[in-house]
Amino acid sequence: MTDAAAATDGEPLRVILAKLGLDGHDRGLKVVARMLRDAGVEVIYLGLRQTAATIINAAEQEDADAIGLSMHNAGHLTLAPRMVNAVKEAGLDIPVIVGGIIPDEDITELLDKGVAAVLGPGASTDEVIAAIRDSVPS
């Protein structure tokens, strides 16, 4: 296991990866899944067409450290904040990280609405891992 992927207490991070809504572009999600695996992370891969409810359900049962969402359609301003709220309403303290094609002008809005980090296309493994590590509450 690489140091980067170890949670603060030396155990591997467990991260949920999913896409919300109908959009089927999963190339980025799959690349990130492998990236994280190769950095020592345990990826709970939910894939396409998840809802906030199915992700919360998995996050509780899997005791996930973070939720990663990939977004390539116009819905990010609706769907990502909704996920953040669902996490809060479930009483969970799990960061929501968004990756994908997000216009610069929307990034601030997403962060204001509680998204822990936004990763653009071309983010390196180190950047992805750092974003997760910095977001996970110690």
Partner: peptide, 22 residues
């Protein structure tokens, strides 16, 4: 788990989730 990196991709929920009573 990957024997080299210790990481893993756990994907069993996907097809299970479709059919279980949550």
């Amino acid at each position: 788990s990957s024997p080299i990196t210790g990481g893993a991709i756990l994907g069993d929920r996907i097809r299970m989730d479709e059919v279980i009573d949550r």
